[in-house]
Amino acid sequence: MRPTVHALEELHREGLLSDEAFDAARESLPAVDQGSRADWGRGLLLVYGSVLLLAGVVFHFAFNWQGMSKFAKFGVVEFALAACVACAWRKGFETFTGQVLMVGASIMTGVLLAVFGQIYQTGADPYELFLGWSALIFGFVVTSQLAGHWFLWLVLLNIGLFLRWEQAGVPAEVAYEWSCLQLGALNGLALAAREWCPARGQSWLGSAWLRPMLVSGVLIPMTFPLAHCVVEADDITLLRGVIGMAWFGLAGGLYWWYRDKLPDINVIGLVIFNTAVILLIFIGDVLLEPLNWDSGWLLAISIASLAVMSGSGMWIGRVSRLMKARDSEVNP
């Protein structure tokens, strides 16, 4: 919890801080709070200022598109890209300004690819744009060492893989389960990198918010085939069945790892919620629907929702208490 006047007042009001303790903490606060407040304000100005400037450049380019020669189009974009990289180098790649500029360079790379595709009418599919974009900016991502930049790169990869199935896979009658498997594997690798790299000097990958996002990126695509198996149990393909079964191993593995090895209640919550959703689909479709209860089905699923979600809540509470007990044993 951040140290703020508001937090101290709450503790004082609850009788947890004496008047002397409150005054002493309050006096220590300005040196802490004011500096961090100034940092935060300047960081906001940098991010929003950069985004607005970049958006202005992109829209100006879009407006004048028809009237510009192809060399002018390339020139503007390449100049912007080079300027971002040069300014980032000048400022220092490890500074926040430098990192924001490298993100700008990544955005301009995407614009350059779009311009290239438009001018030369390459006939490339959009998924090729996204995958090419991801490949080209990988160097920028590694140089900037910014978790948000890396996440953006992952998002581009995910979009590229999904579009690849949609634009190339569907016409060739490739099963959607392959796309699910690829997305799950990609995000799984990213999750492994997030856990492995910080211990090896890449602390920039250790941002707390990355973990639940990546776990969601692994669980969600792997859930669809299993849910499909449950809903259409009489039409299960081999691939769908295998991925469906793999979900159990995946969920169990994540649960074990983030309960015992790297305790994280947010990930446990995600796994439990994912399990609850699958369970509800199973109860509704496999257990209750064959009974042909009409309106009774609605009442039964209503009660089942309560039971499953409250059970999930109790489960999370139990795991949380276990983690705290273990933590207090290790750090008395």
Binding site: M1, I265, N266, G269, F273, A276, L280, S295, G296, L298, L299, I301, S302, I303, S305, L306, V308, M309, S310, S312, G313, I316, G317, V319, S320
Partner: peptide, 27 residues
């Protein structure tokens, strides 16, 4: 007490209650 676990539990509680209420009203 202001832990992440209690926030997750409240979120699950809310989702479960909403789902249940919708199905119950449908019933």
């Amino acid at each position: 007490g202001k832990s992440e676990a209690s926030s997750i539990q409240r979120a699950l509680q809310g989702i479960g209650a909403w789902l249940s209420a919708i199905f119950f009203l449908g019933f």
